[in-house]
Design a protein around this nucleic acid. Structure first.
Lengths: 143, 143
DNA sequence: AACAATTGTATGCTCAACTAACCAATTCGC
DNA sequence: GCGAATTGGTTAGTTGAGCATACAATTGTT
């Protein structure tokens, strides 16, 4: 027996589609790269610290839109796995300066190639102009 | 002293922007409508059941892209709060048929006006054509 | 009738996000 | 310069969501 198609005005809600897309992206990432043992968020943290050595936790959190407590738990985990190193900032004694360890740099390199594959999957669903436009619109939403 | 701007090639990753946008939308939703005591996901469940009375959990999960276990926990919560009612399906004894209670219908009505306000905030950041295009692209990603 | 697949359920784990409270270092206002 | 306010980091506890696994009941297949 054919299923009755599920129809709902929920389809008109933009936020609904953002949530579904986020879920799909997350799922694809973890399914395909579960052996890495890294979440997208964790990769983002390493990535950002790599591009900005000495970054403080508060700046990291601002960039990734996490509060201090959330930032702590993620940085803690990355430190426990010996991917990140904390140092007291020389210029502001309240801040921590974050740096990648050698091991962290290796993990990031692996992660980046995983992300590249993942991005390819995502981008294959759209054409280049669409991608440009999509990023532009998403930026308007999260800025 | 001016902060060094945080620059990173992470900005070129589409998935990164999707995650940030999702976070922003989530944050705005919960900030503005915390008194409702409902998450977006929970609203989606009530909404979908309202538009499709007798929906089974598996169908609900498929539509919202959740597995059975996740669907369970959310339906359980909605049942505990007396928003949803479970019935054994007449046509298939394995399935549950889900229905809104009167209280659930009221909660949904309130939630819908909250979502409307939330959507207005989201949509105000884009123009109508952009919104159409955005939804179209997000659908390509999550389908 | 025997077997496989589907649906719901229960349990336990992980991750991420948030709050609240607290402390130390810094900056502000006077 | 000094006390007060702010900022950054830390800790602890709570919540929501997602996943894996195992199991029971029902249905479908052969």
């Amino acid at each position: 027996m054919a299923e009755a198609p599920v129809i709902s005005s929920l389809q008109d809600i933009v936020g609904f589609h953002i949530r579904l897309a986020h879920g799909a992206v997350n799922r694809h990432f973890t399914e395909t790269f579960c052996d890495l043992g890294m979440t997208q968020k964790q990769v983002s943290v390493l990535w950002l610290v790599s591009d900005n050595p000495g970054l403080s936790q508060i700046e990291l959190g601002r960039e990734l839109q996490m509060d201090r407590a959330t930032t702590m738990t993620i940085v803690n985990r990355m430190q426990q796995r010996n991917f990140l190193r904390r140092e007291r900032s020389a210029t502001d004694g309240r801040k921590q300066s974050l740096f990648l360890t050698d091991e962290g740099a290796k993990a990031l390199a692996l992660s980046k190639s995983a992300v590249a594959q993942h991005e390819e999957w995502l981008r294959s669903r759209l054409n280049p102009e669409e991608i440009k436009k999509l990023v532009e619109m998403l930026a308007k939403i999260h800025d």
